[in-house]
């Protein structure tokens, strides 16, 4: 690859484009984060509705990531290790939630969860409510977050040489022991990245959740409501808290797992 020198006009085009992108990302974020005063921020975090909604957002996203981890890990492993007819089809199906517009996701889930559908009927007979419930929120968040987890972990598994597993098997380890002792520890990093990507995506979901469950209110819905009813000034502090708490959580998760990896 050639090196770009400062003399070439392309260098300056690249620099200006880069600057525009940096401004686009950073300017609004910095503006929003610095707009509310300290006292308003303090007042906001004492608001029970705000705390409740942020907590709901965090733990429903966490549940979505946990479900993705439990169900997505074996699937990601199979996709990484085997070659079969229809594999590309399955991969495309997993990617579908990424490309479908968010409100459409809400409508689609509603169409099977409503009383008009036998599945919805079954759920309501079992006492499981999707509409306007935490269960419904978790279903939606899993739907939109799962592809991020599966793709990250699949890439991680693909990076582990199958020969390591072969050697482990030949030394007497069953498939399950091999997965626990070799594959899982080596894929841990990509699983962490998958969990972070999946929960980050889940926490940011608005369009689909607002259709399934306006109440109980997750943070983005509360944000929207505050904006609609009271205006920008009242929604900014909620946004600042949501962003800060998410960043802090991801940072802690990252530090914890990095330490574990070093210890082992």
């Amino acid at each position: 690859m050639g090196k770009i020198t400062k003399k070439e006009p392309f260098f300056w085009i690249a620099v200006s484009c880069g600057l525009v992108i940096m401004l686009l990302i950073l300017l609004p974020l910095i503006q929003m984060l610095t707009a509310p005063s300290f006292s308003i921020l303090k007042e906001t975090i004492q608001d029970k509705d705000v705390v409740r909604s942020i907590w709901l957002s965090v733990y429903t996203a966490g549940l979505a990531a946990t479900i993705s981890f439990l169900f997505g890990t074996p699937l990601a492993y199979v996709l990484a290790r085997s070659c079969f007819r229809g594999k590309h089809l399955i991969e495309s199906i997993i990617d579908l939630p990424i490309v479908i517009p968010h409100p459409v996701v809400g409508i689609a889930i509603l169409s099977v969860a409503g009383r008009g559908h036998w599945l919805g009927q079954l759920f309501s007979e079992l006492g499981i409510r999707i509409m306007g419930s935490v269960t419904g929120i978790v279903v939606v968040l899993t739907f939109v977050g799962l592809p991020f987890y599966v793709n990250a972990v699949k890439t991680g598994f693909e990076g582990i040489s199958p020969r390591l597993e072969n050697v482990s098997r030949s030394l007497g380890a069953s498939m399950f022991s091999t997965f626990c002792r070799v594959t899982f520890p080596l894929a841990r990093r990509s699983m962490l990245i998958g969990i972070i990507m999946c929960s980050a995506r889940a926490i940011s979901e608005f369009g689909a959740v607002v259709i399934i469950a306006y109440h109980p209110m997750i943070a983005p819905v509360l944000l929207y409501e505050r904006f609609e009813s009271y205006g920008l000034k009242y929604s900014q502090p909620v946004a600042v808290w949501l962003v800060s708490i998410c960043l802090a959580l991801f940072l802690i998760l990252r530090i914890l797992t990095l330490r574990n990896t070093k210890n082992s």
Binding site: R163, N166, V167, R169, S170, L171, G172, A173, S174, M175
Partner: peptide, 11 residues
């Protein structure tokens, strides 16, 4: 299965 064979492999 490979784990029951008593055959080691070095790559």
């Amino acid at each position: 299965p490979p784990e029951k064979r008593g055959i080691s492999i070095v790559y």
